[in-house]
Amino acid sequence: MGKNVYSSEVKWAVIKDKMTGELSNREIMEKYGIKNVSQIKTWMKWYRENQIYRLNQPIGKQYSYGHGLEWKSEEDKRNSQIEQLKMENEILKKYLELRKELKKK
């Protein structure tokens, strides 16, 4: 039995769904085909501890020095950083929106 590999897009989507609080861990696992709840907890831990570079690392590849992928070009690196920032921005917007709704109640 091999290890499951999840794309960075799936990881960010899971974090976004978890931050909204609309879905339970079980529902998130079913939605994205995640086998174990500890995977969600790990990704959330990385996000909370601002170790977001780890979300882009391939399985079994731990970058102890560079803190991230080895890039083919500076443009690839910039494009990846832009995509990552866009995903973070979406999460923060949703969080602020939910916070605003909760204050109204």
Rank of each mutant, 00 (worst) to 15 (best):
I82G: 04
L23N: 01
K77A: 00
L92S: 12
M1R: 13
K45P: 10
N4L: 15
S73C: 08
K18F: 15
S73T: 12
N50R: 09
K11F: 02
K16E: 14
V10Y: 04
L96M: 06
I28S: 03
I52M: 11
W12E: 00
G68C: 03
Y53F: 06
K105S: 13
L98F: 05
K94H: 08
Q51A: 06
D76G: 00
Y65V: 04
G68W: 00
Y53T: 02
W43D: 01
V14K: 00
E9C: 06
K103T: 07
E83K: 04
T42Y: 03
W12H: 03
G60V: 02
K11D: 09
W71C: 02
S64H: 07
K3L: 13
S8R: 09
L96G: 04
K41V: 12
I52P: 01
K77H: 00
P58R: 03
T20M: 13
Y6G: 10
L98K: 15
S24T: 15
E83T: 07
N89K: 10
K100P: 06
S64T: 04
Q39V: 11
G2I: 15
Y53D: 10
G66E: 14
Y32D: 15
K104I: 10
K3S: 13
E90N: 11
K105G: 13
K41S: 15
N89P: 02
H67N: 05
L98I: 11
I34Y: 01
Q81Y: 08
G66I: 14
E75S: 09
H67M: 02
Y53W: 15
K105F: 07
Y63Q: 09
G66L: 13
K31T: 12
I15E: 02
I28G: 05
I34C: 04
K16F: 08
M1H: 10
D76R: 00
M1Y: 12
E88L: 12
Y6N: 14
L92R: 13
E88T: 04
N4S: 12
E49P: 09
Q57I: 01
E75H: 02
S24C: 05
E83M: 06
N79H: 10
S7M: 02
Q39C: 12
V37T: 11
N50I: 07
K35Y: 15
R26K: 15
W12N: 01
M87N: 07
K105M: 11
S8W: 08
N56W: 03
Y53R: 03
K11G: 02
H67I: 00
L96E: 03
H67Y: 09
R54Q: 09
E75N: 07
N4D: 15
K35G: 08
G33V: 14
I28E: 00
M44A: 14
E101S: 09
V37Q: 15
N56R: 05
D17I: 04
V10W: 04
G21K: 14
S80L: 05
L85G: 06
